[in-house]
């Protein structure tokens, strides 16, 4: 995916989220939470687009799931823990959880566990830029910018210009086994 395709995908995601939120009567109680690190910039972009579509600015937050991982003992070295920053009450909100790539679903599982420690949301939707398949848990995206067929040994990388790495691009790297 190139920069233009990514922009269109984000616009489409925002439109679908806005439509679904209105239909559910949740447009006023919408909040966006990006999963660190890949989901943070996407969450900011979605917020911008949703502000235009909804006419008000939904609150945005950040989750770092390092403390909720299920593979701490297996990793050897403890993973780096980044900041989690949710400054709005989660209670009763419709939360759009945002990540760049949905793969095994384990990150989303951890994010859901962490999110409910902040309160009881009315509902949680999952929005991702790329759903690459290979899910290992019963978790699916409510909104996906693109579906890619990618083999297990390969890696899907989303690079956004906010990271200072040049133009937006989605790359598939690694050999097909």
């Amino acid at each position: 995916m190139d920069a233009e395709q990514i922009e269109r995908a984000v616009g489409r995601l925002a439109q679908e989220i806005a439509d679904r939120a209105r239909a559910a009567g949740a447009a006023d109680a919408l909040a966006i939470v990006g999963i660190r690190r890949g989901g943070v910039h996407l969450a900011a972009r979605l917020r911008l687009a949703l502000t235009r579509l909804l006419g008000h600015e939904p609150p945005v937050g950040t989750l770092d799931i390092a403390l909720y991982r299920d593979d701490l003992s297996a990793r050897g070295v403890a993973p780096v823990v980044g900041p989690t920053d949710i400054r709005f009450p989660v209670q009763g909100k419709t939360i759009v959880l945002v990540d760049d790539v949905l793969y095994t679903g384990r990150t989303v599982r951890a994010a859901l566990d962490e999110l409910v420690d902040f309160g009881r949301p009315r509902r949680v939707w999952l929005a991702v830029l790329v759903d690459r398949g290979g899910h290992e848990l019963p978790i699916a995206a409510d909104f996906a910018g693109a579906h890619l067929q990618v083999a297990d040994g390969q890696d899907v990388q989303v690079r956004l210009h906010e990271d200072g790495q040049g133009a937006d691009v989605v790359l598939t790297t690694g050999r097909v086994p």
């Binding site: 770092d64 390092a66 403390l67 909720y68 991982r69 701490l72 003992s73 823990v81 980044g82 900041p83 989690t84 920053d85 566990d113 962490e114 420690d117 902040f118 309160g119």
Partner: peptide
């Protein structure tokens, strides 16, 4: 790391599962 840990202490539910078991 303690900066992130301090944030956990300010949450409504002051518990994370990192060292379960």
């Amino acid at each position: 790391l303690a900066v992130s840990m301090k944030e956990v202490l300010r949450r409504p539910i002051k518990k994370v599962p990192s060292l379960r078991g």
